[in-house]
Simulated assay, not measured.
Amino acid sequence: MWLVLASSDRAKAWTEWDTYRVALLRCGSLFSAVRIPGYLVYTAAGAEEPEAVRRFLAEILDGGPIFYDVGGQQYYALTPASAARSWRLTVAECLDSDAFLGVPATDLTEFDPRYPAYWVVPMDGPGTLCAPDDVALLVLMGHQSAVKKAEADR
């Protein structure tokens, strides 16, 4: 798996994936990651049911890889490393070379209560990443929907 190249200790990353099903990888060289609060994804998708969210994300991100951190209730869309330099949306953070990210094993594609994260839309192949504009559209859709919902609830 090419993602292991983001680790300074590749053997350790493989061991982490085998043992814990999550490996700590450095952002900023092979990829960056946009951390998206779950509520933004759900409001953009108009659903919280996992299969509906999966279909929505696969479509809006054109099959780009995204995983879900169950404990943190955050989605992580993997983007090119260069995305961090131009990311300007404050409601979702783009992690760059200062950040390490717990990335699930690539075969962990369904929720399993034993593990902290899983791929909602798995990687299609080596180097496959989300287009930053697609991720920005997702974030903006979620934010606009959340604002409208908050206004309607007043």
Score class of each variant (00 low, 15 high):
residue 3 L to K: 03
residue 149 K to V: 01
residue 50 P to E: 04
residue 139 V to C: 00
residue 51 E to N: 14
residue 42 Y to R: 06
residue 149 K to A: 02
residue 14 W to Q: 03
residue 132 P to D: 08
residue 18 D to E: 15
residue 100 F to V: 15
residue 124 D to K: 13
residue 123 M to L: 13
residue 115 Y to H: 06
residue 112 D to P: 11
residue 98 D to A: 13
residue 54 R to S: 05
residue 43 T to A: 02
residue 70 V to H: 14
residue 35 R to V: 14
residue 69 D to L: 05
residue 4 V to K: 04
residue 148 K to S: 02
residue 43 T to C: 02
residue 64 G to N: 05
residue 128 T to V: 11
residue 13 A to W: 01
residue 128 T to F: 01
residue 74 Q to P: 05
residue 127 G to S: 09
residue 106 T to V: 04
residue 108 L to P: 09
residue 111 F to L: 10
residue 138 L to Y: 06
residue 117 A to Q: 09
residue 87 W to V: 06
residue 15 T to I: 08
residue 151 E to G: 12
residue 139 V to R: 05
residue 37 P to W: 07
residue 99 A to N: 05
residue 6 A to N: 11
residue 106 T to A: 12
residue 49 E to Y: 02
residue 9 D to W: 08
residue 14 W to H: 00
residue 147 V to Y: 05
residue 154 R to F: 07
residue 103 V to K: 12
residue 47 A to M: 01
residue 74 Q to T: 12
residue 108 L to H: 13
residue 135 V to M: 03
residue 22 V to R: 12
residue 125 G to Q: 13
residue 13 A to R: 02
residue 144 Q to V: 12
residue 74 Q to S: 10
residue 41 V to C: 10
residue 65 P to Q: 11
residue 8 S to E: 09
residue 73 Q to K: 00
residue 118 Y to N: 10
residue 111 F to S: 10
residue 123 M to N: 08
residue 38 G to T: 15
residue 76 Y to D: 09
residue 16 E to K: 00
residue 91 V to M: 14
residue 154 R to S: 00
residue 28 G to T: 11
residue 109 T to S: 04
residue 60 I to D: 02
residue 4 V to D: 10
residue 152 A to R: 15
residue 44 A to T: 00
residue 122 P to M: 00
residue 55 R to I: 04
residue 12 K to M: 15
residue 39 Y to T: 15
residue 35 R to H: 03
residue 15 T to H: 08
residue 68 Y to H: 11
residue 26 R to K: 10
residue 47 A to S: 00
residue 87 W to A: 05
residue 23 A to P: 00
residue 53 V to P: 05
residue 54 R to I: 02
residue 109 T to N: 12
residue 150 A to M: 09
residue 140 L to P: 04
residue 8 S to H: 07
residue 99 A to R: 06
residue 21 R to S: 06
residue 37 P to G: 06
residue 85 R to P: 11
residue 76 Y to Q: 04
residue 68 Y to I: 12
residue 17 W to P: 11
residue 11 A to H: 02
residue 63 G to S: 00
residue 48 E to L: 04
residue 18 D to W: 10
residue 18 D to N: 13
residue 101 L to V: 15
residue 18 D to Y: 08
residue 100 F to H: 15
residue 106 T to R: 07
residue 88 R to C: 12
residue 57 L to P: 05
residue 61 L to W: 05
residue 132 P to S: 05
residue 132 P to F: 01
residue 145 S to P: 03
residue 99 A to Q: 12
residue 4 V to R: 07
residue 122 P to L: 05
residue 25 L to K: 08
residue 92 A to C: 06
residue 36 I to F: 15
residue 31 F to E: 09
residue 117 A to V: 01
residue 51 E to K: 03
residue 105 A to R: 14
residue 76 Y to P: 10
residue 33 A to I: 15
residue 94 C to K: 06
residue 16 E to C: 06
residue 83 A to T: 08
residue 61 L to R: 12
residue 120 V to Q: 13
residue 123 M to V: 14
residue 139 V to M: 06
residue 10 R to S: 14
residue 57 L to E: 13
residue 130 C to S: 05
residue 22 V to I: 10
residue 114 R to S: 07
residue 65 P to I: 09
residue 43 T to Q: 07
residue 3 L to T: 02
residue 129 L to F: 11
residue 62 D to V: 11
residue 69 D to M: 01
residue 130 C to F: 01
residue 131 A to V: 09
